[in-house]
Design a protein around this nucleic acid. Structure first.
Length: 346
DNA sequence: AATACGGGGAG
DNA sequence: CTCCCAGTATT
């Protein structure tokens, strides 16, 4: 175990990538990076991380922000509950922890969107505490080191706990945890691991057997279900009708052209009237958009509709409005909706 | 224990 | 195309 720590730390000191969140010790920035990195690759995160911090440089700035503005910075990154939780957590930190990101596991895990992984990452990386972390990379590295096809959650966490060094300044749990993940991300990859470059190859049971890729046993997942939806381009004097999705559920809080599941035009027209009070007519086909979600494959058929004269219901302004192109650019939109607007020539 | 929740990059 | 990523919340 001491050999593993030493070899991994030496390798990490040499080979680690220069990433923005490795140039700071600000717990807020570490926390933000860990949240953005949940189920999201490093290269995808970097530009979002930089822009987000420019806009919301501190816990206080985030706590004071408008949720729509936070979602706007998050738009395109996915898993939007992360952004809504981050904003709520910032408010909680201001209220309950004097605007300082807490370092106790119980306080961290009491924040929305912070689970065992993020808690451990913030505690070890930002505060130098002896806290284990288990993410997808760590699971894979541990499965290979032990040549166990299937380690349970408890076993993974126990192993990670046993490996992580004591807290700073005696040990470097921050460097060690990042090294474990870095190894999984750059060397001990899911397919075609580069064992010849691995600093702990001599300690790896899977490499010894010559079949590192067999660990862990690949999980079989259901293929995405095909779903259909119908959306409407409704414009008036160059302004486009957009509606806001409910804050719970998929793409929560983001804006979209009015949509219904299924393929019913009358259903779409009824939905628009229900949401906005607006009657529409004269449907014309615009085209269709394909978009793949993790467990759905969506085909969105798009039609244009002409609005009859009349105002939007005033009460619905937060949930539906006619937007100029400048206003559209200022709203949080999913990638699906960007594709849809591109199709409609917006 | 299973499932929902985005998007994108690698092979 | 398939796989899966610095996971969390909900059921």
């Amino acid at each position: 175990m001491a050999r593993l720590r030493r070899a991994l730390l030496a390798w990490y000191r040499r080979e680690r990538r220069d990433l923005p969140w490795r140039r700071t010790d600000d717990p807020y920035r570490i926390w933000l990076s860990e949240t953005m990195l949940q189920q999201t690759r490093v290269d995808t995160v970097i530009p979002y991380y930089e822009r987000f911090l420019e806009r919301f440089p501190s816990v206080d700035a985030l706590a004071c922000a408008d949720e729509q503005d936070v979602l706007k910075e998050w738009a395109g990154l996915g898993y939007y509950a992360r952004a809504r939780n981050l904003k709520r957590a910032a408010e909680q930190i201001v209220r309950d922890h004097g605007s300082r990101v807490p370092s106790e596991a119980s306080a961290l895990e009491g924040l929305p969107g912070v689970g065992r992984y993020t808690s451990g990452a913030v505690r070890s990386i930002a505060f130098g505490e002896h806290a284990p972390i288990v993410d997808g990379n760590v699971k894979r590295v541990l499965a290979r080191l032990t040549a166990e096809a299937e380690l349970g959650d408890a076993e993974n966490w126990d192993l990670a706990e046993a490996l992580v060094p004591p807290s700073r300044p005696r040990g470097r749990p921050d460097q060690f945890n990042q090294a474990l993940m870095e190894l999984g991300a750059t060397v001990c990859t899911p397919r075609s691991p580069r064992c010849t470059d691995c600093p702990v190859r001599s300690l790896c049971r899977a490499a010894e057997r010559g079949t590192p890729e067999a660990f862990p046993r690949p999980a079989r997942r259901a293929s995405p279900r095909e779903v259909e939806a119908l959306g409407a381009i409704v414009s008036r004097r160059g302004r486009l009708l957009l509606t806001r999705r409910p804050s719970k559920g998929m793409l929560g809080g983001l804006w979209e052209v009015p949509c219904v599941g299924g393929d019913s035009l009358s259903g779409l027209v009824a939905e628009i009237e229900r949401r906005t009070g607006l009657r529409t007519r004269d449907p014309r086909p615009v085209g269709s958009v394909r978009h793949a979600f993790t467990h759905r494959a969506l085909t969105l058929r798009v039609v244009s509709l002409q609005p009859e004269p009349g105002r939007l219901r005033r009460a619905s302004r937060d949930a539906a409005r006619f937007c100029s192109s400048a206003e559209v650019a200022d709203l949080p939109l999913s990638v699906l909706m960007r594709k849809t607007l591109a199709l409609a020539g917006r």
